[in-house]
């Protein structure tokens, strides 16, 4: 289970996140949405333990995967990238690349990918390992309609296999509706609404 209690994040004297109470049950899929600068990335990074809240308590599983809003392409090929820290899962890697229609690019240097291709690669790189809590920051921001559909499918398959909790952020209502069953709207760091889709 994921739980936040009176969590605040302040930069200088601006409060960018202020969540008195938030609970996410095990196995739930939650979409975060809200204007630019509303605190989505901040909330995800706090859950991923990449950022420390200034006050409050955060409960989250140890076993977390986090896909940053701007993922990095490591040196080496696309396949090398998927295999980082997962050397022994070559077959799964190839299968994942296939589902996201990246097979043709497997031997290409990852640093030469287009924005959308890189985003799909970054998702493969995450989905090759199991976790208890999956955090995705705007995973389809650079994708076309087909790419978005592929991501939805890959996510659904991953969830079926691992039974994990998913928290993702997005600006696309349709993607949110397809990939999650609960929608949280952030506004200036506060939860404006929270309900099932």
């Amino acid at each position: 289970m994921v739980e936040l209690r009176s969590v605040k994040k302040v930069y200088k004297d601006r409060t960018v996140l202020d969540v008195p109470q938030l609970r996410i049950q095990h196995g739930e899929s939650v979409a975060l949405t809200g204007a630019n600068g509303s605190g989505k990335t901040t909330l995800l990074r706090i859950l991923a333990r990449l950022l420390r809240a200034d006050s409050g308590t955060v409960t989250a599983p140890q076993d977390v995967l986090y896909l940053p809003q701007h993922p990095y392409a490591f040196r080496g090929t696309v396949l090398d990238n998927v295999l980082i820290g997962a050397k022994d899962r070559r077959e799964q890697a190839l299968a994942l690349l296939e589902t996201l229609e990246l097979s043709a690019l497997a031997a290409k240097p990852a640093q030469s990918l287009s924005g959308g291709e890189l985003q799909k690669l970054a998702l493969c790189r995450v989905l090759i390992r199991p976790c208890a809590l999956l955090l995705l920051d705007e995973p389809t921001a650079a994708l076309d309609t087909n790419g978005t559909r592929l991501v939805c499918d890959a996510l659904a398959r991953y969830k079926a296999q691992t039974d994990c909790t998913v928290v993702l952020s997005t600006h696309a209502p349709q993607f949110a509706a397809k990939a999650a069953e609960r929608l949280i709207v952030l506004c200036d760091g506060r939860i404006e609404s929270d309900g099932s889709i």
């Binding site: 991923a48 990449l50 076993d63 977390v64 995967l65 986090y66 896909l67 940053p68 701007h70 993922p71 990095y72 490591f74 040196r75 980082i84 820290g85 970054a122 790189r125 995450v126 390992r129 976790c131 955090l135």
Partner: peptide, 24 residues
């Protein structure tokens, strides 16, 4: 920063992240 953010997000060990930063 982006290297570390990405690598931590993948749950890689600290030693591994240092090696990655050095090689990148």
């Amino acid at each position: 920063r982006p290297i570390i953010e990405t690598a931590r997000g993948l749950g890689l060990s600290d030693a591994r992240i240092i090696l990655l930063c050095l090689s990148e």
